[in-house]
Write a protein that binds this DNA or RNA. Structure first.
Lengths: 162, 162
DNA sequence: TATTGTTATACTCTATAACTATA
DNA sequence: TATAGTTATAGAGTATAACAATA
């Protein structure tokens, strides 16, 4: 087991701080790595000042043109009232549009503008570079392994709830 | 590649929503899995109403008895003013104590109470069960693989910053 | 009556800066 | 002058409930 950051058991006064039992949990390592990744991505896209959830919303709309705000909310795991704010933001930027549905006039059908599509492509490029940087030390095989392990671990809990 | 949640490309009206390009990024899978994990853990410990950062702080104090608030802050990646609130909370619960340092009277030396130690043990048991549940489908070998891959990917960015 | 989107409200989380007491 | 801890404030992020329009 790798213990790079591990110091002596009670080295509170020394330079290194021990992680103790935390170091043996996947949850901790998952969070730690994901934090690094999202900080890197936020830094790479800082000039746009993207609010949280905005990038994901953009990507889901791209993959599901015409999706309603309600379904989008469920998919990103946010309340529909939050999605209203995200859509307000996206429309203000000119990256997405609400179109009243002809079939069900309560709904909005969501879509990207050309500008939004260009931005999304650009954001995915930033994400590509970020991930390339962070996962530098892993071989393509190992990255694929990681994908599969994460996917299998998650699929158990895909209960469609919330 | 596993595509369990993948629907037809533009199936906005069908039951399944496509994740589109997101599905090909480790950042997305990391976040998704980590969300599940932390929701499960929060649910398992809901009766205590633990504020965010409290569990981690407790674990770091256990592993580094006598640590200062400043070092704790750096280790958990929060501002020292946040750590004040967490310590207030921990003391109110009777789980941790601040003791004025004799060597440097500006500092507090942090430590767990017996009650805090018992609680932490109990919380780690909950975490054990949570992880056991979530990573049910992975073999011990695969779990160890996951540990190592996550650890190696992270260590690149262990720059001690912030 | 139920659902989609909206608004209002409040609560948590976090960052920043100013303050105090010690060094 | 610098550091450890504290306080106050403000800004995000999020959840909840009430509401209007439509089904």
């Amino acid at each position: 087991m790798t213990t790079r950051r591990r110091a002596a058991p009670d080295a509170a006064t020394a330079e290194q701080v021990s992680l103790g039992r935390l170091d043996h949990y996947l949850g901790f390592r998952l969070r730690r790595l994901q934090n690094q990744l999202s900080k890197q991505f936020a830094a790479a896209t800082a000039l746009h000042g993207l609010r949280s959830g905005l990038f994901t919303a953009l990507a889901i709309i791209e993959a599901n043109p015409g999706i309603s705000q309600n379904r989008l909310a469920r998919e990103v795991g946010l309340d529909k009232s939050l999605v209203v704010l995200i859509l307000d933001d996206l429309e203000k930027r000119g990256w997405a549009e609400r179109r009243r549905s002809a079939a069900d006039r309560r709904r909005h059908e969501l879509g990207l503008t050309d500008e939004g599509q260009r931005m999304l492509n650009q954001l995915f490029e930033s994400l590509d570079e970020t991930e390339k940087g962070v996962f530098d030390r892993l071989s393509p095989d190992e990255i694929e392994q990681l994908h599969q392990l994460l996917d299998r671990a998650y699929s158990l809990w895909d209960d469609g709830a919330k």
